[in-house]
């Protein structure tokens, strides 16, 4: 049981990072700090998916070794290569995360131009005082 817990330490680190990001998104008042928390949250999830593709026992990067043309009809030894499916999925996730970050930063700049502050409680107070 202890061996099982320690052997999967990558998943524990993933959970800790995800909770750090969630705390920053919910507990911090500054909008840029919330966005930094969202970035940490997203890369924690990517870390989880990459960790599921890892194989122990000498598995290498999924590039076909040897003479693929000559032995094309033979079965490929799957245990010798890492699982490339989570890698490909997470490539898309990285690009999506940078796109959402760009849109959020644009919205933050617009909020700063209108309210002249980035603190969430001050923005809510200004909105309440002016009755908007």
């Amino acid at each position: 049981m202890l061996d099982y817990v320690i052997g999967k330490y990558n998943f524990w680190i993933y959970a800790v990072l995800m909770m750090i990001g969630l705390y920053a998104m919910m507990g911090k008042k500054n909008l840029v700090k919330k966005l930094i928390g969202m970035n940490i949250f997203q890369s924690a999830i990517i870390l989880f998916y990459i960790s599921t593709g890892v194989k122990t026992g000498g598995a290498t990067v999924p590039i076909l070794m040897g003479h693929a043309q000559e032995h094309g009809h033979q079965a490929i030894d799957v245990a010798g290569y890492l699982n490339p499916l989570p890698h490909v999925l997470m490539l898309t996730a990285i690009v999506v995360s940078i796109a959402t970050t760009g849109v959020a930063l644009a919205i933050i700049i617009l909020i700063y131009r209108r309210y002249n502050t980035l603190e969430e409680n001050e923005i809510l107070k200004i909105r309440k005082d002016t009755g908007v």
Binding site: G53, V61, H87, M90, L91
Partner: peptide, 8 residues
């Protein structure tokens, strides 16, 4: 890189 996901 260390986990073998070089493209990512």
């Amino acid at each position: 890189t260390e986990m073998g996901a070089v493209d990512v």
